[in-house]
């Protein structure tokens, strides 16, 4: 097991390198001159060629592509992602707090998605074909197909404006979490509970369930066995849900003015703040790879068949 984890972690290093290279290369392909962006943001009225050349030299843009890439990778390893073109502050000082805020939102949302999906999935599997199952699936289909910005607007209008119960935006207290988490949960739980439901249903028809019943085991114990086997599929899906939500909170964060990665990335893209965009893509890629690895490791720990294959 230990060697498997080491192997998986080692394997992810070249993957991160490839992603970092692609990210860097794509930004490099952008027709915009970073020096111009910097000078514009400083509000300099007359941009001369001389000034441009000076700024380029200051940013290190006069060096060859590969040298710049290597310099960037080495400093990234020390968590130094450069300085923002716009504010001049170190990227990490802006990205770090935003990342933490988004992680908080993501973790709370994932927790509620997992709870809701398991509860609904188990309930629907037990009552498969009955009205409970049909209505839950119908309502969830309706809610999941609503775009999240529309759902967010509806919730804000009802709970914040009409009832004045919850804040419309920002991140002041635990109350600020309720609406964004609700929007994210509604968009994702509707997909994930189906996975649990169908895994439960296919496990219920397995022979081991029949044999457990034939041996007179109580339904409660049998349900635990079914759930344990069904969760194997779901756990890898849930693990991948965390980075997916992390990367897709853009809409929700912008609507609720959540000071997270989504808001920061949109702002940076609009102002062509390349160092932040580069760092954002890289951080997300690392998170994706990390959770992919973690989900594989959890799966191996849960599934004895996979464990034997090591």
């Amino acid at each position: 097991m230990g060697s498997y984890i080491t192997k998986r972690l080692l394997l992810s290093i070249p993957l991160v390198l490839i992603i970092s290279f692609v990210t860097f290369a794509f930004i490099h392909l952008s027709p915009l001159d970073p020096a111009e962006v910097v000078l514009h943001s400083q509000g300099i009225p007359q941009i001369t060629d001389e000034l441009l050349a000076q700024t380029r030299a200051k940013l290190g843009m006069d060096q060859p592509f590969l040298t710049r890439y290597l310099n960037w990778v080495v400093s990234c390893l020390q968590l130094d992602f450069g300085d923002s073109y716009i504010t001049g502050k170190p990227v990490w000082s802006m990205l770090g707090p935003a990342f933490l805020h988004t992680v908080k939102l993501t973790l709370v949302s994932t927790f509620s998605i997992v709870l809701l999906s398991i509860a609904l999935g188990v309930a629907c599997a037990w009552k498969a074909g009955k009205w409970v199952d049909k209505s839950v699936r119908g309502v969830s289909f309706f809610l999941t197909s609503m775009p999240s910005y529309w759902l967010a607007a509806l919730l804000i209008w009802y709970f914040s404006v009409k009832l004045d119960l919850l804040p419309t935006s920002g991140m002041e207290s635990y109350k600020s979490y309720i609406l964004p988490v609700a929007v994210i949960t509604i968009s994702y739980a509707g997909i994930y509970f189906r996975i649990i439901r169908s895994a439960m249903l296919s496990n219920m028809n397995e022979d081991y369930v029949l044999y457990a019943r034939a041996c007179g085991l109580p339904e409660k114990k049998i349900t635990i066995h079914i759930l344990r086997n069904s969760l194997q599929v779901a756990i890898s899906v849930f693990c991948m849900a965390i980075p997916i939500i992390l990367g897709s909170t853009v809409v929700v964060e912008n609507i609720f003015a959540w000071p997270g990665l989504g808001t920061l990335s949109v702002k940076s893209i609009l102002s062509r703040d390349f160092p932040i965009i580069q760092a954002y893509v890289l951080v997300l890629a690392v998170v994706f790879i990390l959770f992919n690895t973690v989900s594989d490791i959890i799966n191996v720990a849960l599934n004895p068949k996979l464990r034997d294959g090591l």
Partner: peptide, 8 residues
């Protein structure tokens, strides 16, 4: 082969 819970 299928009569016992595969993960126990």
């Amino acid at each position: 082969m299928r009569a016992f819970d595969p993960s126990c």
